[in-house]
């Protein structure tokens, strides 16, 4: 398509402006984490690594980081196992209520977190489940399953159906077909789904707020809670930078795995 010079310039400017608005704040957080002063004022007063060298001494930050990692790992594992099994069920079989199951499985990602959060909290309290790590994990798993499932079922749909027929035709049992043909073809989608589930769980705030009891605090909650406390504020920029540095390559990897080479 040919564009006039004017619209080319306009489009380019709009693109750069949008990307700038999106990413400048991230750069600011990174820069401010090296500020020598306690305030977040701009420009930074001077360069210092003191917040970086001491943030691990802040016990609440350390514990929040650990809790978040633990919750995200468990939620991710549950999501990958159940999401993948669900994808196989929905892709390979026809059964009564299939569309309903498919809809209900995907619904949590569309539901406002506050609805999921309130509903889960009510249920947990009513049935006497302690609000803690377990309740948060269950809360996160509800929407993490969706991303794992979406990734895997999209890949299953892209695999030519006659590959499984060819495998059976050559004498392979169902298990051999799964092991040698289907699994290698969906593996990268399963991993990508897992990474996305991890990332989703790691920075979730709303459902966490409702399902976490008094005894547990995740990293996003810690950041939120400490934003108004001048003593801890500089550490917030450090932690935010760390989260950023961890999640960028994960997002990149998930993207690469999702559209890998297997179409042709």
């Amino acid at each position: 398509m040919q564009l006039s010079k004017g619209s080319r310039v306009a489009l380019r400017a709009t693109t750069y402006l949008t990307l700038g608005v999106l990413y400048t704040p991230l750069v600011l957080v990174f820069v401010l984490s090296f500020n020598s002063e306690r305030s977040l004022a701009w420009p930074p007063a001077g360069f210092s690594t003191r917040w970086w060298s001491t943030f691990l001494d802040v016990e609440s930050a350390r514990e929040a980081l650990l809790s978040s990692a633990r919750i995200a790992l468990i939620a991710m594992t549950i999501a990958v196992v159940l999401g993948t099994l669900l994808s196989f069920a929905l892709h390979s079989f026809t059964f009564f209520g299939k569309n309903v199951v498919s809809f209900l499985a995907v619904l949590p990602i569309a539901l406002p977190g506050i609805v999921t959060g309130v509903a889960l909290r009510n249920t947990f309290v009513r049935f006497g489940v302690d609000l803690g790590l377990l309740s948060v994990v269950v809360g996160h798993a509800t929407f993490c399953i969706v991303v794992a499932h979406n990734n895997v079922i999209a890949r299953l749909r892209r695999i030519a159906p006659n590959l499984r027929e060819a495998s059976a035709d050559l004498g392979a049992s169902e298990w051999q077909t799964l092991r040698y043909v289907t699994w290698p073809l969906i593996r990268s989608a399963v991993i990508a789904g897992g990474i996305l589930a991890f990332a989703l769980s790691f920075d979730e705030v709303v459902v966490t707020t409702f399902t976490a009891g008094a005894g547990i605090q995740t990293l996003p909650q810690w950041i939120l809670n400490n934003f108004s406390r001048p003593n801890v504020l500089p550490y917030v920029t450090v932690v935010a930078t760390i989260v950023l540095v961890i999640s960028l390559p994960l997002a990149w990897l998930a993207q690469r795995l999702s559209d890998s080479h297997l179409d042709d």
Binding site: N162, E165, A166, D169, V181, L185, H261, L262, D264
Partner: peptide, 11 residues
């Protein structure tokens, strides 16, 4: 069987 679109395992 030899399939119409060959059905070779791509991986």
């Amino acid at each position: 069987t030899v399939f119409q679109d060959y059905a070779l395992f791509p991986h």
